[in-house]
């Protein structure tokens, strides 16, 4: 292991950087819009964790599958869902990627093999294994990446799923995005075994911890796990160590951790800055180029907001659609 940074080509770095910049600026805008009450409900931001999903996508094929929990905006964008459709979903508009039925926590796109954001902690873990089960059943070569937070690993669903995924050698990669806190409870306060990756070892699942603040290390770990899955050798559990800069959700002031801790990540380990440094060092982009990119992303986000603003609300009759496949289900109305 331990590929040198320079072994990844220029295009890979440029894509990582541009994708992560879009995720971050998109979410910074979402936070602002939440403050203006354009976005309602629960809203969980990914800011700080971008390298995890960016490093994943560069190591996968287009027909591989993703499923995650409710901190799902960046995953949706990374899968290729247009930012404007994600923004429209945050607004609850009919043009959103889930037609306004999902909101922040439930982005979906069949076209982009994004099996959704799921709102019950750990509930998506067996679903991810099931998606992989279906591909294996059909003899497909797809791999499913199933994300969860560090809180979810304490759910029974994980343990039941790990056992069966190993028993049946399902082509799935379980990724714990360990950002240190399950809402306001630190990993240390939930367990005496803080090395989360070791949970996989109890099922003889290949497992390891990965630096999640760098796209390179994430890409490398995912690529290795994807190869294992694709060649019929079953699942992998990756504890990708990362950090969220914002609170658990928009209503969380994050008083359970120190300012110094947050500042250390922002200043010394930021995934965008680390990626940018490699690009700058190799002179693949200069200051003017970075500024041009910033402007391009800013315009992209502005366009997404404009699209969401100008999109219609779903009509009330839509509420009765997609509950059942057939459109004539006899709902009780009074």
């Amino acid at each position: 292991m331990g590929k040198d940074k320079s072994t990844y080509p220029k295009e890979t770095y440029l894509k990582w950087y541009e994708d992560m910049l879009l995720m971050r600026r998109f979410e910074e805008k979402a936070a602002q819009l939440y403050g203006q009450q354009k976005i309602k409900g629960f809203c969980h931001l990914y800011i700080g964790q971008e390298a995890v999903v960016a490093g994943t996508m560069s190591a996968l094929n287009a027909d591989d599958r993703l499923i995650t929990a409710y901190r799902d905006h960046a995953h949706a964008i990374a899968c290729g869902i247009p930012a404007k459709e994600v923004m429209a979903e945050l607004y609850g508009k009919a043009t959103g990627c889930s037609k306004g039925k999902g909101g922040s926590m439930h982005m979906f796109s069949k076209e982009h093999n994004f099996f959704g954001g799921h709102g019950i902690v750990g509930g998506q873990i067996p679903l991810g294994a099931g998606i992989a089960f279906a591909d294996q059943y059909r003899g497909g070569k797809q791999v499913t990446v199933c994300y969860m937070g560090d809180g979810a690993v304490r759910q029974g669903a994980l343990h039941e799923t790990f056992n069966m995924a190993m028993l049946w050698k399902l082509p799935v990669i379980f990724v714990c995005e360990n950002n240190g806190y399950a809402m306001g409870t630190s990993v240390e306060r939930t367990t005496n075994m803080t090395d989360i990756y070791k949970i996989g070892l109890g099922y003889d699942m290949p497992s390891k911890a990965v630096d999640g603040m760098k796209c390179e290390t994430v890409h490398e770990a995912i690529a290795e796990a994807a190869e294992r899955a694709r060649t019929g050798n079953g699942p992998t559990f990756l504890e990708i160590r990362t950090y969220r800069y914002r609170g658990h959700s928009m209503s969380d002031p994050a008083k359970y951790r120190s300012k110094e801790e947050v500042e250390d990540y922002k200043t010394n380990k930021d995934p965008l800055e680390q990626c940018k440094a490699v690009i700058a060092k190799n002179k693949w982009m200069n200051e003017a180029d970075f500024e041009t990119l910033e402007n391009k992303i800013e315009a992209h986000v502005a366009e997404a907001v404009e699209f969401a603003e100008n999109s219609p609300w779903p009509t009330p009759d839509e509420l009765y659609k997609d509950v059942y496949v057939e459109e004539d289900y006899p709902f009780i109305m009074d």
């Binding site: 873990i125 067996p126 294994a129 099931g130 998606i131 089960f133 343990h159 039941e160 056992n163």
Partner: peptide, 18 residues
Amino acid sequence: PIAELGFAGIAVGAAMNG
């Protein structure tokens, strides 16, 4: 195995995927 939550969830996921 005796793991209703797990195998029901795997079945639901498989149904999501065709």
